[in-house]
């Protein structure tokens, strides 16, 4: 059991967990800024990004594709902002116009180019392939101390771990400016904080997290992890510090439970094949949010909302 677990389940589970946490952290602030759907927009434009990177480099290599995806996310964010300001269009509609158009462009490029020989398709982009990120060389827990085996860990694990660490470090470092500009933008500006830059930086970090997570686990988890754990966490507490803590707990729980249910759940029902782990992780995060909506201690709006005296 131990050997098999380390070889086949440990790394996917770790990657899923790190991806979930990296997305959930910026998700908290996006949620409070009413920008929750920017995660949705970013994860849709990842596809055109990797297709363009593939067409430019002619190879399916991880780094150029990550850069392409990150570039597409930045382009999308700028276009959304430009449409909002220049066209005086409400944010939701501006987002909808942008990400659907870019996504359509990505699909068309993919159809037009000869990608039949390489493993690059839309379903993979959406659903990821968490199950395939196994640790071939592992021979049990002892491999954790074996340099040869460690060198054969999937690249995705190193990348998502680095991004997750980056996200955590940035969240800690910029905690105060983030909190103050999210709560009261005018006050932050009057103090001389660059609120525009902070907002853009937040979306940028979200994009980096989304791209790295997408690489490992596909778009669905990305959207689900941006929104579901922070939303459920908001219903558990009335303090930002604790909300962020809860969101990490929920993200980890979704990733671990979702992976286990996808891998072993069908066996309990007499099936033989595992189901999509990415999909199941999203479903579990939704169930957690559903529970929080039903019984979360701070689920309802209360008190004066700025008008009543």
């Amino acid at each position: 059991m131990g050997n098999e677990f380390v070889q086949f389940s440990l790394t996917p589970m770790l990657i899923g967990t790190l991806a979930a946490v990296a997305c959930a952290l910026p998700g908290n602030f996006l949620l409070l800024r009413r920008q929750a759907l920017i995660g949705d927009a970013i994860s849709h434009v990842v596809l055109p990004g990797i297709v363009v990177a593939f067409l430019l480099t002619g190879a399916v290599a991880a780094i150029p594709m990550l850069l392409g995806a990150a570039g597409a996310a930045v382009v999308a964010v700028i276009v959304i902002e430009a449409i909002k300001r220049l066209g005086r269009i409400e944010p939701g509609a501006a987002m909808g116009v942008t990400f659907t158009s870019l996504f359509a462009g990505g699909v068309l490029l993919l159809e037009q180019s000869d990608t039949s020989s390489v493993h690059l398709d839309v379903e993979h982009a959406l659903m990821g392939n968490l199950e395939s990120l196994i640790w071939f060389k592992a021979r049990g827990w002892g491999s954790l101390l074996d340099p040869v085996a460690l060198a054969a860990l999937p690249d995705e694990l190193g990348r998502i771990a680095a991004v997750c660490a980056l996200v955590i470090a940035l969240t800690v470092l910029f905690w105060r400016p983030l909190k103050i500009s999210t709560f009261d933008e005018g006050f932050a500006q009057a103090q001389g904080l660059p609120v525009g830059l902070i907002g853009f930086g937040l979306v940028g970090v979200a994009a980096v997290a989304a791209v790295a997570a997408f690489d490992a686990v596909g778009s669905i988890i990305v959207i689900a992890m941006f929104i579901c754990p922070p939303a459920a966490a908001r219903l558990m507490t009335n303090r930002l510090e604790r909300q962020v803590g809860w969101s990490v707990v929920f993200a980890v729980a979704s990733a671990v439970l979702g992976y286990v249910l996808a891998g072993y759940g069908p066996l309990w029902f007499g099936g033989q094949n595992a189901v999509s782990a990415a999909g199941m992780i999203a479903v579990v995060s939704g169930l957690i949010l559903g529970l929080a909506c039903l019984v979360g201690p701070h689920r309802a709006r209360v008190g004066a909302r700025g008008e009543a005296a």
Binding site: A36, D40, A278
Partner: peptide, 19 residues
């Protein structure tokens, strides 16, 4: 709940799609 509509939209779309 106290969640805004955009959060509800994002939650529903990702969870249903995952399912």
């Amino acid at each position: 709940t106290r969640l805004s509509e955009d959060a509800a939209i994002g939650a529903v779309l990702s969870v249903f799609f995952g399912a």
